[in-house]
Nucleic acid binder design. Structure first.
Length: 609
RNA sequence: GCCAACGUAGCUCAGUCGGUAGAGCAGCGCAUUCGUAAUGCGCCGGUCGUCGGUUCGAUUCCGACCGUUGGCUCCA
């Protein structure tokens, strides 16, 4: 069983890109020290505080506490004021190395800290950092003095299980951030504000793209006409590229008998993510959480020869998975979604070529959506795994060789693969530098075994093919959410649901405007007409707010001369031209970023070779 | 699922120390016919998330539920 949509779960994180590389360490030190100051302040403001840990993060810091008082944002001013007092006092941070026994003595009554102490290996040194009357078990490093903290802010408070385990007590985590200067702090807060402006949930409502409905259920997406139009464009492009790239497309059912899911192993290992069975004619059927068993059924529908391989079968397959209520998040984490799934069945000697081809294909598709900054992660065999060692070695080598031949930088997550096979994940960076995992390419040594998938080799014997699962965009819902944030709702021309809006100056120009609209629509341009009676400024504003790429303004001058006055979303007034000239320009511009690009075509041809 | 906060018109929000609510935008109507980011006037619109409890009376207090939001392995 391959969960090719573990990507569904991964949230974007802003890397610490506000600073230069060499400064990252200093920033971590600053933030970690600020976390200590916050902990000291919380201990002063409230009684009976149990401390856990307080690390720096990619964009700030947090500290976990356990105390009777429920901390709310209303407590922040008091905590921040106390922090400021500690900073103004310019207290030194002192590193103190102690014996385990001394440490236990110093941590008396601090149950979490004592457990953390017990985690420290016997041969490691144990250090405390003392800052005035506050000392914390800590590896460091820290600033020299609290006075070096120039800018900080507490941001939020949230529950957090001790050690992240549901069975452990819930602690209170206070998040904050700190920067070298007030100006840099302002920049961080501004970035957060920018992220808020881009939030796909907000833009989804404002641009009328999609919604969730309480009457239907959480985590279930309704695509409105504008969002659905964009999805269609994505899907059309996706299908076209897949056919060009040597794939065939499958459609498979949404439910299947219990026996299928027994064989696949899903009922054994994945049951808690599946919805309860429904009974049909005295047999149990399950809604599909993955597509792979169905693709295997198609494979097994008749005998396969080595001459048939490789088989590349893709499907925009809608799956349903139970996700805990608290983890649902807009389009990024949902309960029903459509994977851009594919399964590749190939002979062992074909794997390197197939992997290379798949990665190249993935990169080409991602670039088409404006993602240029792509990084790769290779996950290798975990301790517990199925499949022969030599298969793992082959597959891992194929992944690695492909990455090297494509000259891709990649990080290795040793032992990070699934029990059924190694994988490569691709992450992209969006317009404001946040990283998102989209593509995943996973070997599966489990499923072919379970379903006894074979092909007849040249030797007349039955052989086990390699099976690769891959998703490029992950889920269409999640990918769409990321795209909305990446483009801030201002979709490029080829994806814009309404590419052009015609704005007559007065209704004297309505007839001519309608004629222009009809002609553009005839030419395949997605065109709208603003027939309201407001001033032209209001119509322009309406189109700008809806982020429509082009406006065609038609007053008496244009109507008389058979022209249109072009205004672009980004560039403003661009002057008049004829409707035909404009249509030609649109045709030229409304293409994916790499389509028609000779370099991309070469990549594609190479991939087919 | 767990912790916390929140839920008032389609959207963004105000308000009620318990006596059944208001604005802007959107929508609709009328007037306006205007040259590159908001024309004016009027109208419509809410069982104050749902259910139950306390009360003469609940949108307001209490409880349960539903939903939303921020988090829940970035290691002392």
């Amino acid at each position: 069983m391959a969960d090719i949509l573990s990507a569904n779960a991964v949230q974007g994180r802003a890397p610490g890109h506000l600073c230069q590389k060499g400064e990252i360490l200093d920033l971590e030190r600053l933030r970690h020290s600020t976390a200590h100051v916050m902990a000291a302040a919380v201990c002063r403001v409230f009684d009976g505080v149990q401390l856990d840990i307080g690390p720096s993060t990619s964009d700030g810091f947090y500290y976990d506490f356990d105390l009777a008082h429920r901390i709310t944002p209303e407590d922040f001013p008091a905590i921040e004021a106390e922090m400021s007092r500690i900073i103004d006092a310019d207290i030194p941070f002192e590193r103190v190395e102690v014996s385990r026994q001394q440490a236990a003595e110093m941590l008396r009554g601090q149950t979490y800290k004592l457990e953390r102490l017990a985690d420290i290996p016997a041969d490691a040194s144990i250090t405390f950092y003392r800052c005035g009357d506050f000392a914390d078990l800590c590896r460091g490093p820290h600033l020299e003095r609290t006075g070096q903290i120039k800018a900080f802010k507490l941001l939020s408070v949230a529950g957090s299980y001790y050690r992240g385990l549901e069975t452990n007590p819930m602690l209170q985590r206070v998040y904050g951030t700190a920067a070298a200067t007030p100006k840099e702090l302002k920049a961080i807060l501004k970035l957060q504000e920018e992220a808020k402006q881009r939030d796909h949930r907000r833009l989804g409502r404002e641009l009328d793209l999609f919604s969730m409905q309480e009457d239907v259920g959480p985590g279930l997406i309704h695509w409105h006409p504008r969002g659905a139009r964009i999805r269609c464009l994505i899907e059309d492009f996706w299908r076209q590229e897949h056919f060009r790239g040597g794939y065939e497309i499958l459609y498979t059912p949404h439910i299947g008998r219990a026996g299928l899911w027994e064989t696949s192993g899903h009922l054994g290992f994945y049951r808690e993510s599946m919805y309860a069975a429904m009974e049909i004619d005295n047999a149990a059927y399950y809604l599909k959480p993955m597509n792979c068993p169905f693709h295997i059924q198609v494979y097994k529908s008749h005998k396969r020869s080595y001459r048939d391989l490789p088989l590349r079968w893709a499907e925009l397959g809608t799956v349903y998975r139970y996700e805990k209520a608290g983890v649902l998040h807009g389009l990024l984490r949902v309960r029903g979604f459509t994977q851009d799934d594919a399964h590749i069945f190939c002979a062992p000697d074909q794997i390197t070529g197939e992997i290379k081809r798949t990665l190249r294909f993935a990169i080409s598709i991602l670039r088409s959506f404006g993602f240029e900054n792509i990084s790769a992660y290779l996950s290798t065999r975990p301790a517990k795994a199925v499949g022969a060692d030599e298969n793992w070695a082959d597959a891992t080598a194929a992944l690695e060789q492909a990455l090297q031949e494509l000259e891709m930088d990649y990080q290795v997550d040793a032992g990070g693969g699934a029990f059924y096979g190694p994988k490569v994940d691709l992450k992209i960076q969006d317009a404001i530098g946040r990283e998102w995992q989209l593509s995943t390419v996973q070997f599966d040594f489990n499923m072919p075994e379970r379903f006894d998938v074979t092909y007849t080799g040249a030797d007349g014997q039955e052989h086990r093919p390699y099976m690769v699962h891959r998703a490029l965009l992950g889920s269409l819902e999640r990918f769409f959410g990321i795209l909305v944030e990446h483009y801030k709702g201002a979709f490029p021309l080829w994806l814009a649901p309404e590419q052009v809006r015609v704005l007559p100056l007065t209704d004297m120009q309505l007839d001519y405007a309608q004629q222009v609209v009809d002609n553009l629509r005839e030419a395949g341009v997605r065109t709208g007409l603003d027939a309201t009676s407001g001033k032209i400024g209001a119509k322009i504003r309406g189109a700008q707010v809806q982020k429509i790429p082009y406006m065609l303004i038609i007053g008496p001058r244009e109507a008389d001369a058979g022209l249109v006055a072009v205004r672009s979303r980004a560039g403003g007034d661009e002057g008049p031209c004829t409707p035909d000239e404009f249509a030609a320009r649109i045709r030229h511009e409304a293409v994916p970023q790499t389509a028609g690009d000779p370099a991309a075509a070469r990549t594609d041809a190479a991939a087919r070779a």
